[in-house]
Amino acid sequence: MAEETPKKKKRKHDFFAEDTVFEMPMSQMIDCVFLLLIFFMSVSTIDEARHSKDVELPVAKNAAVEQDESDRAVIDLEWNEIQYSVVLKMQGNPYYEARDIVPPLEQFSRLHPVKGRVVIRADRQVPYEFTQEVLAAVGEANIASVLFSTLETELPARVPAGGG
C-alpha cells in the first residue's frame, strides 16, 4: 500500500472565526446614495398644472413641441366607455356640462386677452360630439386659439387600476 503523498492543503479562510472582521466600504456607498438622492431630487418636479392622469392622449407624429406653457387654460376630457359619458375638467376642477366652462373661460380670456390659448386634453376615445361642445364653449368665450394635446409615440401598456 503506497503511502499517501501529503497533499498541499488549500488554505481556507474561516469566515466565522471570531477574529475575522468584515468592513463594508461605507464611504463609497454613501457617495453613491447621495448622488442618487441628488439625481432624483433634481429630476422631480411638482406637477403644478394638475393635468388629469386618466386621459389617454391620441398619437400624432407631426404635432409641434411647445415649451411655452404660459397663458394656457387646460381642459381635460376623460372618457367613460361604459357610461358613454365624458368627465370634463378645467384646471383640475370638474364641470357637469360644457356650457358651465364658459364663465371661467371668459374670465381667463379677460386676464389673457392677447396670448390666451386653450389646451384640450381629450382622451383618444372621446367622440366628436363631446369635443364639439367644448369647442363651442371656447368659441363663446371669444378665445380663438385652441391646441389639442397629443403624444409623439404610443404609451407603454397601461397597468390597470388596482394592480390587476
Partner: peptide, 21 residues
C-alpha cells in the same frame, strides 16, 4: 424620491384657430 418620480412624457400639440369677431 424614487417612488415619487415618474418619467414625464412630453406632450405635443396640434393647433387650430376658431372663428371669432
Amino acid at each position: 424620491f424614487m417612488a415619487a418620480s415618474q418619467i414625464k412624457l412630453e406632450e405635443t400639440y396640434l393647433g387650430l384657430r376658431l372663428p371669432s369677431g
